[in-house]
């Protein structure tokens, strides 16, 4: 017999239940906001890398190489512990003491910047996979640049980009767990905190895992539905 006494009630007993729910909510909002930054910044980086301009390509390329080739955890520490130490000591202390939810917003920015480097690469890959003749075919019928992008290129590119985007969002969502290392009480952080009060880590980490799985499955199902809706008949879906 194991001597471990299961007590699942730690998951909903006051105040742990509230911590857990707040953790889940934090995970969802933090990873969604980060992904919003990732898509906006990633679109810029991706477009920068395909523009016929050496300077934008250098900027985009350096960004991707710098961010993609350093561990995400190091970046998180850099943003939270490293960057503020550049400031004079008084203002550094003031920031840690007075900026509300500093770990949370640092997590959003860091995760967003990190994911942008990956999203940017996907966008670049999607754009360069559309042959230039496709643009020219549209132009040759008299469509304007705007109409060509609006009716031909973007609808085409979206279908190419959606499967890798789903993967990137899920990675972003799971990476949000690491923000507990700078003190964000998201799902993983909350389960760790409850464990430290109750010694029921098995229950809390199991619950956290279930939360991640359920949300991931929901996203996968949603995106599969979206992909089916916009699927191009006769074209084989590209692998993940």
């Amino acid at each position: 017999m194991l001597s471990y006494d299961f007590d699942w009630s730690v998951l909903w007993k006051h105040p742990y239940g509230r911590w857990m729910l707040e953790g889940i909510w934090t995970t969802i909002t933090l990873s969604s906001l980060a992904f919003l930054i990732a898509v906006t910044l990633g679109l810029m980086v991706g477009v920068f890398r395909v523009l016929p301009n050496r300077i934008t390509r250098l900027i985009g390329g350096s960004y991707v190489e710098l961010i993609r080739n350093t561990p995400y955890l190091v970046q998180l520490f850099f943003w939270y512990f490293g960057l503020p130490s550049l400031l004079p000591q008084a203002s550094e202390k003031w920031i840690y003491d007075h900026v509300p939810s500093l770990p949370y917003w640092t997590g959003v920015v860091c995760l967003g910047v990190y994911t942008a480097s990956r999203v940017g690469e996907q966008i670049r890959a999607g754009m360069i996979s559309i042959p230039t003749d496709q643009y020219q075919a549209a132009f040759s019928t008299g469509l304007t640049t705007y109409q060509t992008y609006r009716y031909v290129i973007i609808p085409y590119a979206i279908r190419i980009i959606i499967p890798p985007f789903t993967t990137e969002f899920l990675t972003c969502f799971k990476n949000s767990a690491l923000t507990m290392t700078i003190g964000v009480l998201e799902t993983t952080g909350a389960s760790y905190l409850i464990d430290s009060y109750t010694w029921h880590g098995l229950e809390t980490t199991t619950a956290a895992s279930v939360v991640y799985i359920v949300i991931t499955l929901c996203v996968v199902l949603l995106m599969a539905w979206v992909e089916r809706r916009i699927h191009i008949p006769g074209m084989i879906a590209r692998g993940r």
Binding site: D133, Q136, A137, Y156
Partner: peptide, 12 residues
């Protein structure tokens, strides 16, 4: 009008 080697129809 212009016709291309690889057709370039809009796949969607």
């Amino acid at each position: 009008g212009m016709v291309f080697q690889r057709f370039e129809l809009y796949p969607h």
